[in-house]
Amino acid sequence: MRYLLLKKANFDDFISSLAQIEKVVAPVSRGYNSFSFAEVKSGKEITLKYIPTVLPPKKYFMPQREKLTEFNKAENSVEAILEYEKMVIFGVHTCDLAGIQCLNIVFSDKPKDINYLVRKNKLVIIGLECNDYCDQYASCKVVDNHLPNGGYDLFFTELDDSFIVHVNTGLGEEIVEKTRLFIPNDQEHLNKLEAIRARKREIFKEEVNVKHKDLVTLFNDKAFESKVWEDLDKRCVACGNCTAVCPTCYCFDILDNINLDLNTGDRTRRWDSCQTEPFAKVAGGENFRKTRGMRQRHRYFRKFRYPAERYSRYFCTGCGRCTRTCMAKISLKETVNALAAEQKYKK
């Protein structure tokens, strides 16, 4: 739609005035070079230069625990419900914008998930550009997420003493109206933005020895039998960290909870991990992914092959969280490179 400018001097006012209208969440520092999205009241609480948060903003779109139905046994009634909260999410990197797009696709695939689809439109997304690599674990270029590909209401790019802001939607315009801190930009600012993007095109290189389009073919039937998974079998401890932090992992469990009156209660879905042992076990005891290696293989194929076949999109956003968080130091880039080497792939 259009570009506007926000002076850095006004950033704190911007967040605090926004926080008066709506709940605002943004990346805050947790120490030890860790960050998480949390509620903020002022811009000072926000860390603008952050590496991907421990959990991605997925937690607002698909809460860790979400009530689906409520029941009353005595009245023999069940109601389907949605619990939601209006919120502005500030500071979403392009990798996480891509993650949200992946979730949108999954939950709008038929049959549609009404809970997700209604909730997502209660959330305002303000993106924030990474002008440089966050760290050595990221691989956003190979999956093409180092530059913005939509999925936001406003998008901030840091210039010298200001942010150039892309206003992408009506919701974004509303924020501009309500906060009254944005000013028109000059051509000079657009030139600077273009210079940043040009520099990014230079410094962001495919982080693995595989081309973007070839990732899906790398995860072929032969790769299913690869030695790589035997290696991961020995190293993985099935702590489930990689799936918890992944912006595109959406597996869940559904559990009943009864209240202490033993009459009313709810059916709740909760994040689940395909890396845990019981995940694919049927009631009779058969486990269809018995070993940690099989489960790791499943995770990788769920990022690079199955969604590519179903939705023509990789479900790896290149955020690097799974590698960053892995206790066993299993690295996504190393795994992909090992597969490429095994298949004697040439870029």
Partner: peptide, 17 residues
Amino acid sequence: DYAVCVECKLNENICMY
């Protein structure tokens, strides 16, 4: 029957290690 880590990461704790 899975590790405390599964829940710990969901609480966004920084790993003790």
